[in-house]
């Protein structure tokens, strides 16, 4: 029987970078992209199972699409206990969103400081090429210096949105396998 793992994935980032769009595009399998900007108040929960290749196991991604506005930050932190994986999103046309990535990451990591939480850094809105202010190299450097994996995507073009989720699911599954090894060695 295939094992179904459950991962709590916290999607965080500044307001208006595209977290809800990414989550909805991934959740609907690139069927729909929210054209109008709807500000997320508090947290939206979306669940989607991801198949792990070379295995019959599935990882259910519980995406906690959190609000980006600072006013909601206290409220949103209440939903952030025991994160499994983290996804920090920033907008390549907005430099402030890039510089706040570290802030968001620290907030999430503070919820569970003893364990290593795998995560990804997402550069969204790469379709706005002329307004792009942050180079991929900068993003990659920030991701590497904080132990995150760097991905670029465009929720509007529905391009490369699935890859970070697959990566996170894979990492989670890998962690599970490692844990099983550890538990087996204890006995």
């Amino acid at each position: 029987m295939p094992t179904i793992l459950r991962a709590k994935c916290i999607v965080a980032g500044d307001a208006g970078v595209g977290k809800s769009s990414i989550c909805q595009v991934f959740h609907s399998d690139s069927a729909q992209f929210p054209k109008n900007y709807t500000m997320t108040t508090s947290v939206e929960l979306l669940v989607k199972p991801v198949n792990i290749p070379d295995s019959r196991d599935q990882v259910e991604m519980y995406m906690y699409d959190s609000a980006g506005k600072e006013i909601f930050s206290e409220n949103v932190i209440k939903f952030w206990d025991h994160p499994s994986v983290v996804m920090i999103v920033y907008d390549v046309t907005d430099e402030t969103s890039f510089s706040s990535c570290i802030k968001w990451l620290e907030r999430v990591r503070a919820m569970k400081s003893q364990t290593n939480i795998p995560g990804v850094l997402i550069a969204n809105k790469i379709d706005l090429d002329q307004r792009r202010l942050i180079s991929p190299k900068e993003g990659k450097d920030l991701a590497m210096s904080n132990g995150l994996e760097y991905f670029e995507c465009s929720a509007k073009e529905m391009q490369n949105v699935d890859t970070p989720f697959f990566y996170m699911a894979h990492e989670f599954h890998k962690m599970y396998q490692e844990r099983l090894q550890v538990y087996s060695s204890l006995a």
């Binding site: 208006g16 900007y37 709807t38 500000m39 108040t41 307004r131």
Partner: peptide
């Protein structure tokens, strides 16, 4: 109030997008 705020934020966002698109043109 939240709904109203969402509505306003939508307007805000479209305005900001418009502004940035225009500034990009004049860049």
């Amino acid at each position: 109030l939240e709904k109203k705020w969402q509505h306003h934020e939508q307007n805000n966002y479209t305005m900001k997008e418009f502004i940035s698109a225009r500034t990009m043109e004049c860049d």
